[in-house]
Design a protein around this nucleic acid. Structure first.
Lengths: 152, 152
DNA sequence: CATCATGCAACATGTAAAGTTACATGAAAC
DNA sequence: GTTTCATGTAACTTTACATGTTGCATGATG
């Protein structure tokens, strides 16, 4: 199954934006992510809706952070993407008239639900600020890498 | 994202097989699952590899259970399918030369790994025998439903 | 040897993310 | 005001993968 990488992608973008001021154009961000500007706009649209970022048109326009990074968790970002399904597995039918199917679904649902809940809890425990802090540690003494120097 | 339903499907088949003796043809099982015989053969191939089921050709042939249901867990069945990815989300690149990407991946991996581990643990706690027991409870006083009477 | 069943390869379909193209909208620079 | 830059969005193409389908080879039973 093809895996959804929007969460990873949007976090990457946000973290880059947190490293330097100034608005970033979709094109700049797209180059850094090795993707297309339209894709950037798509995944950022949900964040703008929730006022996590702001976008402006015209000269000097682009994307700007507009939230307290210590107040936004990875779960919030996930929700901003529309809460796509987390699990790669599901049932074949949603209305099981067959008792065998019901028994199977009950067992799987239990496990799936627990895993999903744990995942959401974990995502809710990490803020963007914490991610930024972790990044700073990784950077160590090194200079902060300019986004334009992003290597694919 | 489209969700993989092979685990649900194969469990459905196994549980049906546990309800009555005799070999089942792929066609019979396929009708019960409202799918194609070839699909049945595909998902059963992995189980045969691990000797959970046996298949025989020719007249009177078909699929037969060949394991102790109290010794095979849902996790075993999952593994027999080739351990397809459990989570619907992943990273964009696997070799992150970018420190930002590394920081993001580290955070997500942590959460993903925990959820995956929990899910596997849960699946490992349920045996096919337990599923069968649960099914018997659901059946209650009702007669055991013949597989040929399976309603879609 | 005819029939039934699996084994398997090859191809078709459905779905969703990801990528692309095209054009409209609005803001700043000149 | 018109040119330039940037987002907004719809429509389309591509890609990946589960699923569905067809055809034929293989082997077992009657």
């Amino acid at each position: 199954m093809k895996r959804d990488s929007r969460l990873s992608g949007v976090l990457h973008v946000l973290l880059h934006m947190a490293q330097q001021p100034g608005p970033f154009t979709s094109e700049t961000l797209a180059k850094a992510m090795d993707t297309n500007p339209v894709v950037i706009r798509r995944i950022m649209a949900g964040l703008r809706e929730l006022d996590y970022v702001r976008s402006e048109k015209g000269h000097g326009g682009g994307w700007t952070l507009a939230c307290d990074l210590s107040k936004v968790t990875l779960r919030d970002v996930y929700a901003a993407l529309g809460s796509p399904s987390l699990l790669a597995m599901g049932h074949r039918t949603e209305s099981p008239g067959c008792l065998v199917e019901q028994a199977v679904n009950a067992a799987l649902d239990q496990a799936f639900h627990d895993a999903e809940a744990l995942l959401l809890r974990r995502l809710g425990e990490v803020t963007l600020a914490m991610l930024g802090e972790d990044l700073r540690k990784r950077l160590g003494s090194r200079k902060i890498q300019d986004i334009s120097a992003h290597r694919a």
